[in-house]
Amino acid sequence: MELAREIAVWACIVGGSVFCVIGGIGLLRMPDFYTRSHAASITDTLGATLILVGLALVAGPGLIAVKLFFVLFLIYVTSPTAAHALVKAAYSSGLDAPDVEEGSRLKGHLSDDGGPGDG
């Protein structure tokens, strides 16, 4: 039981760290602002979740675990709001973005235009 918990803790915290770093790499690799914000959202969701859940497993049930879930909840509520506000500000200021396409017309035809890598 203790061993299983230890393994779960390691898996969560190491996994969370790896996802954070992947998000950071994405932040550097992606070609423009909009694509970078996708990379940033990885660190805010799975990276933060795994690390905080790992810490909660260490703490065991109790006040500390509750606080960890509060932190997680706050991140989950605030990070998309902040990301949306930022992206919207960028878009409305006219930062270079792809053209708007009609979703209803594209449905089922997405893979036809352009392969991976272009755009």
Binding site: R29, Y34, T35, G119
Partner: peptide, 8 residues
């Protein structure tokens, strides 16, 4: 880096 960014 197989991305295809678009706005829908």
């Amino acid at each position: 880096l197989p991305i295809h960014p678009r706005i829908l």
